[in-house]
Design a protein around this nucleic acid. Structure first.
Lengths: 128, 128
DNA sequence: AACACATGTTAAGTTTTCTAACATTAAAAA
DNA sequence: TTTTTAATGTTAGAAAACTTAACATGTGTT
């Protein structure tokens, strides 16, 4: 366990991430703008992505294909990253909000899968 | 076996390789000039390194620490990469040449290991 | 029709990388 | 000891890659 991959190490420039994910630079930056990823920065302010970042981007692609929007995806990550213990009191996010999210998701349900896209949101396509 | 890491995929810019190997850009380019590595190039001619390249660079560091020079290291890689079957007739590399190599290596034998350097010439320091 | 969301496109500026030339240092050869 | 050579440092100028910001476009929603 101690010796697992350092998947958080910032290694990849945006050009490579574009290839790996088939996303445009615009898309990647837009997702960052909406706090779905937080790539590291070089001293000169260039984004550097970890393998985890790439995984996340592939997941985002999937969620978008499934009809979710930025807010929906963000919520998912926020929930996911909330430690189990303090997961009790859901802050001030009302039922209304949650119902709306759910609604939105249901509307787009079962969207067809276009142009040979991948299912597997994971770098295992490339590694190990 | 089929699902092994794509260690040959060009992913890393030289700045990251510098961090990973603690080599200067000058050194990395010099080793390329001597055909010890052959990083891929972007369309714009920027070097892009694979994980294999990084492994090789760490090995080169080791060999240099052990007193080998470019020619010696090159020979090692040439031999290593020669398929087992055609490994019979050693081209036109005379005994003289080989003795010289060996000699050189022996002279520098058992050089002390300075400033907490790594032994393990391998990215496993970072991954898996 | 008006709006919002995701994405495309463009412009101008900055960082990173490139090659090439010359400098330095230490070890080997003369 | 002087001269070479090997490895690396340093610098300059040019090109590529990346940045932010602004505005454009397409498509589905209200």
């Amino acid at each position: 366990m101690t010796n697992r991959v350092r998947r958080t190490m910032p290694l990849l420039p945006i050009s490579i991430v574009m290839q790996l994910t088939e996303l445009t630079a615009r898309q990647i930056r837009y997702y960052e703008e909406h706090d779905l990823i937080s790539p590291a920065r070089t001293e000169g302010n260039k984004r550097m992505f970890s393998l985890n970042d790439v995984d996340t981007l592939l997941e985002i692609k999937d969620y978008l294909d499934q009809g979710l929007n930025m807010a929906g995806i963000k919520k998912i990550y926020d929930l996911r990253e909330t430690p189990e213990n303090e997961k009790a009191e859901p802050k001030s996010l009302s039922d209304a909000e949650l119902r709306k999210l759910l609604h939105e998701e249901l509307k787009h349900q079962a969207r067809p899968l276009e142009k040979g896209g991948f299912r597997q949101s994971d770098l295992s396509r490339f590694f190990n």
